[in-house]
Amino acid sequence: MDILDILFSAAFWAATVRIASPLIFATLGELLCERAGVLNLGIEGIMVAGAFAGWIAVWAGLPLWGGVAVAFLVGAMLGGVHSVLSVPFGLSQHVVGIGMTLLATSLTFYMYRVILPEVSSPPKITAFQPLDIPVLSDIPFFGAALFSQTALTYLAFLLAAVMAYVLYRTPLGLAVRAAGERPEAVATQGLSVTAIRMGAVIVGSGLMAIGGAFLTLSAFDSFFFEMVNGRGWICIALVVFGAWRPGKAVLGALLFAAFDAFQIRLQQTPMGAFLPYQFFLMMPYILSILALIVMSRRADVPAALMVPFNKGER
């Protein structure tokens, strides 16, 4: 198999869309937080918690969509804690975020051990199955690549469209963006910057958790400790890469996923025997850092990102 064979196989593009899906959920969640002015470094831990919560709920008997809802709620609750500390109290978003990641990760691992004390390998669930979209999935090549995914993948792309619409076409979206750019202008309008920012962090964290749950409910059918493995940090890079815009963030996630799918397949070529596998596994992280460097010159960052707002203080 050489490089062209990889690029012209429908399986490669299907894998790209699949790998991109959890990144899209979590990147959109982070984007929402940052657009409102809050950097959410809890993302990595919230994804771990979401992956576990959704999976354990389904294992306990809930339907798959119930698992997605549970993941969202758990993420939103963790986001609630983050938002109380970082918004009204205005504590360092770096410290709160890292603390939330440590807390959410350790809570998850603790609950896993409490609920499943003696298991050597985690139980499996019946995950989301691919859903062929009528007519579209019959298109040669593209059908197999794009329209034979699970329902959760379609939801990810739908969510990106909804997020773009809400952010740019509704008064609510305007208020969210303004809270991240010029909070005093929002306060002048009689709106509560605190409420807007807290709401954005809570909803955004719920979306991050769904991104985590995608791993256990759709990509795989079980939960492992090292499952999220830095995907949260990669999503923070993707928000920067996407210049804080939903559409560009989705493109970034797809580009990133294509690269990831490509490196997995490249490992099976003669080059894979030449280069140790660790270097292939490094590529996503290196790519994320490169993306940050390339995009660093652009000034799209929300002006009030990481700046606490204390009403009446000038």
Partner: peptide, 9 residues
């Protein structure tokens, strides 16, 4: 983000 990602690398 860069120091975090570099841990994995």
């Amino acid at each position: 983000v860069t120091t975090l990602l570099f841990n994995f690398i």
